[in-house]
Nucleic acid binder design. Structure first.
Lengths: 194, 194
DNA sequence: CGGTCTCTTGACGGAGTTCAAAGCTAGTGG
DNA sequence: CCACTAGCTTTGAACTCCGTCAAGAGACCG
């Protein structure tokens, strides 16, 4: 299954020697995850990073009013994990579970850090990905403060065109920070507008 | 002026050899910045990182409706810069200016990257700081979706207790994503509540 | 000392929430 | 393979928080 990482790296324009590739991929464990199965629970210390080969994961928190807030989706070719908990060994504030039956690749934190030290090209890739994530997260803040719920929904549709067909509406609502009822009304509006 | 970095590093529990410290600090240029003076304009490629010795900087964007949104404040002992623009050489979407007459230390991007490569302890420090920032940014998203404006104001006051006395109210409003009028009403409420 | 910037206060409106109920869909077990 | 149930989505009505617009008071700087 680790062969999918070959095309992934090619797409990201990262070139490893065959030796490096073998070393890296030997540290992954393939895992089948059932829908609704949990990979991380709030309060646990994160010890793994995940790569979605097929299916979809999500990472979310529950606020003090009991509401779920989805921080990130991880469909095919996405990485997911609570980096903070992994590096600081502090209990995570996040849950990670599967939205569909999924195939994922798992690597434990120690192997992960070893790989970054041994293979500089990987360290550079993940620094770039971290930077992109920070940029995306900042844009999300600005967008949540300046755009209406409808604008944010349309933006979500543009960013993840296929995802909206695959996952329940109320998950999108949770990601956008609105209620399922509001999203339902917005979708009606958007359809009748054209 | 670079001597302030000595106590800064001590506080962050980073130990450099005297040689490393000299090498690093020799690459900074002290700069006096007047209130309202700009260090970065939207559309420019960021070529510098800043450390506030005295005073306060801010980084903000202007959305398509013409509203300012403050991404970050940088009072004493804070780093500020558009990392994304610096690393990708893409035009920045941010403005950086001074909220008070300030003393800052400036390092250009090339020297910055060189320093991180030459001094691993620094690379580790800034990876840690980046991680903290990502965590803080994520918390801000959750908070902006789950908490009322009043709760967010009270949280801001706890996080930056001294800052609220120093900077104009409407800057805090811009950071919180509410109007100055709303913040004014919230403050009135908070005072009369006790 | 005049003007601009900042903060406050009021009235009104609108986007989104809450609560409730009724369809609809999909998964499960017989 | 069908029936049943639990979860998901839709719709309605009332409400609430916050934004907008407008006006006035105070503070600070040139």
């Amino acid at each position: 299954m680790v062969e999918v990482l070959r095309s992934y790296l090619a797409e990201k324009k990262v070139e490893l020697t065959e030796e490096q590739f073998k070393l890296w991929t030997s540290r992954f464990t393939p895992k089948k995850v059932r829908k609704h199965e949990f990979l991380l629970n709030e309060g646990d210390v994160s010890k793994h990073a995940y790569f979605t080969v097929h299916g979809c994961l999500r990472m979310y928190t529950v606020d003090n009013k009991g509401k779920e807030h989805i921080m990130q989706f991880a469909p095919e070719n996405w990485w997911l994990g609570d980096m903070e908990s992994s590096t600081t060994h502090a209990p995570s504030v996040y849950f990670i579970d599967a939205l569909e039956d999924s195939d994922v690749l798992v690597m434990d934190t120690d192997s992960w850090e070893k790989s970054l030290k041994e293979i500089p090209a990987l360290a550079m890739l993940f620094q770039r990905l971290m930077q992109n994530r920070q940029t995306a997260t900042q844009k999300r803040i600005i967008f949540s403060m300046s755009a209406s719920a409808e604008e944010r929904y349309l933006d979500f549709m543009k960013t993840y065109p296929n995802l909206a067909q695959r996952i329940p509406q109320h998950m999108i609502a949770s990601y956008l920070g609105i209620t399922p009822e509001s999203l339902s009304r917005i979708r009606k509006q958007v359809v009748t507008k054209r």
